[in-house]
Every structure is written in C-alpha cells, then in structure tokens.
Amino acid sequence: MAAITVKGLRKSYGDNEAVRGIDLEVTDGEVFALLGPNGAGKTTTVEILEGYRHADAGEVSVLGLDPARNAPALRARIGIVLQSTGIDQYLTVRETLSMYAHYFEHPRQVDELIEIVGLEEKRDSRVTSLSGGQQRRLDLAVGLVGDPELLFLDEPTTGFDPSARREAWQMVRNLTALGKTVLLTTHYMDEAQYLARRVAVMARGRIVAEGSPDSLARHGGDARVRFRVPDGLEAPFGAASDGVVEVVAMDLARTLHEVTTWALANKVNLDSLDVLRPSLEDVYLRLVGEAAS
C-alpha cells in the first residue's frame, strides 16, 4: 500500500516555479527522506501533501485522500512537525499536550507521550523554560498526539548539536518500530542515510535521483581500488603517484582479480588495499550541482 502517491505535481509562486512536475511514492511503514538544498521545493511539496497549499497541477493522494479536498479528514490521521511552528510559551509541557490531545478523536495518552520524547522532568515546566532541543522534542510529541498513521517531519534536526541530533534520530527510529510511515525532509545527507529506507534527491523543483541510500551512492560512479606499490617495483595499471595506484573498477571482481594476481606474482601483501565507493554526500553534491548548471 502506498501511503503517499504524487504524480506530475507542479506549483509556482508568480514566475518562480517551485515544483516542476514531480512523482513520488511512499510505501506504508517506511521512512522516506526528501533530500535537497534550501529552495529545492521540498517544503512546498510537503505543504501540498499536508493540505496547507494547493497544487497547480498533478495528482496527490495521501492515505487515499486528496489533501486539497479532504484536509479535515486527513488531518485526523497525520501528524505534522514543521520547522518553525510556534507553541504557546505560557503553557506547561503537560498542558500543551492536553490541549492538542483534545483536537483529536483518539489521542494518545499525554503521560505516555511525555515518556516517548523523554520530557518527564519537564512535565510541569512552562514551554519558555525548555532548551531548543527540548522544545523540538515537544514539537515531536505534539506531532504524535493524534496517534497518526503518517508523520511529516520537516528538517527535524536543523540547528541541533551533534548529541541532540543523535537523540532525535533515535526517536525517529523508535517511531518506525511503532509502524508509522514517516516523510522526512532534510538537507543533511547523513540524516537521510541514517534514518531513511528510501531517499529522493530534489533540486530546483525536480527529483533528480531516487532509491535506497546505497543504490543512490552507486549513482556516483564506479568504485575505485587503491593500493600502495612497494619501492622498486614498477606500478601496474599505469602510473602511480607517490607509490599509490588508484584504479577505476568498471567491474570490481575483475579489477580485484587482476590486482591480486599481480600482487601474488610480485609477492606484495597489499596491506594498504582500499575499495573506495563514492559517499552519498559526493553523489548528492554532484546531483545538486548538475541540476544547478
């Protein structure tokens, strides 16, 4: 079952084409990351799925509903954690969650939510007294209060210190254990790689690549094999720089075979052998760079 299906989605603001015809499919129960630089059209896309904005063209189905027409029915079943939505500063954590719980027909228990996001010690503190990370955890709790089938997380860790990020990631992982579908937008590669089963890279209003983080990494071109040639031996496969040979492996098995055959014949133990794969970051930067040019 597809939690989200998008076909040919377009949206312009005046002359600015924010989204230029994208297709997406997010399966039930998966964490899907929409990755892209600022201004790529991620937020516009997600806000159309959430029913905040209306598409100019294309088909959109979220949990089987059209967000433009069935926003009230849809909002009972989704949770939205936006980048910059405020929360009343003068209520306590528990009061805030009780208030939002009342907006839903079948909310989760407030105390249970406080535990899920680890704010037990701040239960009766006012929102003003929470740290940035704690406020973000409260945001997440508010997003979960309606026990949603599908959760939208917009840039969940922007501005976090590394340990707060790890914590937030662990929390998102725990969500998938609960069977939630998560659509995550982020401009951090490592976040997408760590959390998502599938990733779509968006740049300039288009999806420029899509797949699992591993398969995307393979988009980056072939693996390279690198090893050191001992002094006095002539380097195979062309020139070595500073005694290091780097070969592009169109066929990794064949290249490795050739390297090991040469090594056995020359009694080289290859203790410096590396197989290098392009990182998702390399791929991402290349894709985004291509889209920009």
Partner: peptide, 17 residues
C-alpha cells in the same frame, strides 16, 4: 503574535476546526 509564531499554522494542521 500567534500567526507570526506559527501557532495558528500548527493548529490548522490538526483536526481542530
């Protein structure tokens, strides 16, 4: 203030009319 801080937007994203 509530509009500027995104509080209204957040409420709008829930089933609360």
């Amino acid at each position: 203030f509530q509009r500027d801080q995104g509080i209204l937007k957040r409420v709008q994203g829930t089933p609360m009319p």
